[in-house]
Write a protein that binds this DNA or RNA. Structure first.
Length: 417
RNA sequence: GUGGGUGUAGCUCAGUUGGUUAGAGCGCCAGGUUGUGGCCCUGGAGGCCGUGGGUUCGAGUCCCACUACUCACCCCA
């Protein structure tokens, strides 16, 4: 039985990794201007962190975590999202005592969820994400969303829509939940089975149901933005003002609820229509209670996660051309052992000077060496044999044109000019 | 966890109403004059036909189970 990669995981082979590097480089170059520093936290944490942070009753914590006991009987969990670990690090490292706000990002961080894989959904995926701690103004919400859009645009992705919502805070959300329950309680007959179950536990979820009868009810249901407290309503209004000030278009979508308990006030998703059913490329929002929840001071936070795999799918769908890496500059064909020694010295010298170079290591015929050089797309090929060694001259052949020029064998750095 | 689709060579796929040693193209390796790529020609390697049962004289082909991949629900990035 062949051993295969675990279900829901993907290898990234050399013929594709340049795409990831392109995205990563672009993200770094854009975020550089935003005053964010990179943070790298462990891919596993104590399980309790996620139970406290994400919420005990969420699907993620209840059925999607990779949790196990280590040899010291500690309950460990592979991180199912990025924010909790960064918050833990923020508190533990003492950054809480530094100047605020603190702005951090993580890039291509592996994320693990035990889900059933499908298009755009894996058991291990990778996220780019940002977190801003200690900024309560809606300017921070606006900044992270603008940052996400800026990065997407810089990657050539434009056919996306921004959906925003406010889900209130611990002061106003209970009132809305009650209103929802009252509304649905009078209409139980039209609800589907699962929605009847959701009614008590998480009424917000009913708004998202795809059943025809449920979604018809949802259209007439109370809207959360009508129930926001003064502070939350003001925050939401301020966010919209920032958007219109810089010309960001959005749709207010009361159906956006998010499945992580820590969100307050602003929540948003950036959605693509082109990559199948899992269209959310970027999602996030504000989490003003989380830092305190995890044992830090009472301090607001806002951030997002962006799925790298989905991002690449969107780029592919949009036909974005990603530049391929430079092919090998020089390949050395050799005949005989003395030529190999000489070639080895030459590739060392070329590489030391920053010129990519390689030589035959398979012990092949000259013809096969040329074929190989051709297949890997080498720009130049130079052949070394007895005659060349004796004369200290060799022909450097440009493969695309077939044009050859004579070079001095002992001076490899003069070959490529 | 639930449902649909699909599993034959590294890849894309053929394989007739079940019938003898399982095929093609591409790719890989090697040759086609002794030191030269792309085109062409020749040869080679590489498959327990996803796994396990069953029906049958005989199964890649029919039946069942399992498994993997895939799409979708749920949920999310």
């Amino acid at each position: 039985m062949k051993i295969k990669a675990p279900r829901g995981t993907k290898d990234l082979c050399p013929d594709k990794s340049y795409r990831w590097q392109y995205v990563e480089n672009k993200i770094r170059s854009v975020i550089h201007a935003y005053n964010y520093g990179e943070v790298r936290t462990p891919i596993f944490e104590y399980t309790e962190l996620f139970q406290r942070g994400i919420g005990d009753t969420t699907d993620v914590v209840q059925k999607e975590m990779y949790t196990f006991l280590d040899k010291g009987e500690r309950s460990i969990t592979l991180r199912p999202e990025g924010t909790a670990g960064v918050v833990r690090c923020f508190i533990e490292s003492g950054l809480v005592a530094g100047p605020q706000p603190t702005k951090m990002y993580y890039l291509s961080a592996p994320i693990f969820r035990y889900e059933n894989p499908q298009a755009g959904r894996l058991r291990q995926h990778h996220q780019f994400g940002v977190e801003v701690f200690g900024a309560k103004d809606a300017a921070a919400d606006a900044e992270v969303i603008e940052l996400a859009l800026h990065i997407l645009h810089s990657l050539g992705v434009n056919n996306l829509s921004l959906h925003i919502n406010s889900i209130g805070c611990p002061h106003c959300r209970p009132r809305y939940n009650q209103a929802l329950k009252d509304y649905y309680a009078q209409r139980k007959g039209a609800l589907c089975k699962t929605c009847l179950e959701r009614l008590e536990r998480n009424p917000l979820r009913l708004l998202d149901c795809k059943e025809e009868s449920c979604s018809r009810l949802a259209r007439e249901a109370p809207v959360i933005t009508d129930y926001l407290c003064e502070e939350c309503a003001g925050h939401f209004a301020a966010l919209k003002k920032y958007f219109s000030a810089v010309g960001i278009s959005y749709t207010v979508d009361p159906k956006i609820v998010r499945g992580l308990d820590y969100y307050t006030k602003t929540v948003f998703e950036i959605i693509s229509e082109d990559i199948g059913a899992q269209g959310t490329v970027c999602g996030g929002g504000r989490y003003d209670g989380l830092i305190e929840q995890i044992g830090g001071p009472s301090m607001p936070g806002v951030g997002f996660g962006m799925g790298i795999e989905r991002l690449l799918m969107v780029m592919e769908g949009a036909g974005v051309q990603i530049p391929r890496p430079e092919p090998l500059q020089v390949f050395l064909c050799t005949i005989g052992q003395p030529a190999k020694l000489l070639a080895f010295c030459a590739v060392c010298a070329l590489r030391a000077a920053g010129v990519s170079a390689d030589m035959d290591q398979a012990g092949r015929s000259i013809k096969a060496q040329f074929k190989y050089a051709d297949k890997i797309g080498a720009r130049f090929v130079l052949t070394i044999g007895g005659d060349e060694i004796e004369a200290d001259k060799a022909k450097l052949r440009e493969m695309a044109t077939g044009v050859e020029k004579e070079v001095t064998l002992s001076k490899p750095l003069e070959w490529i000019k």
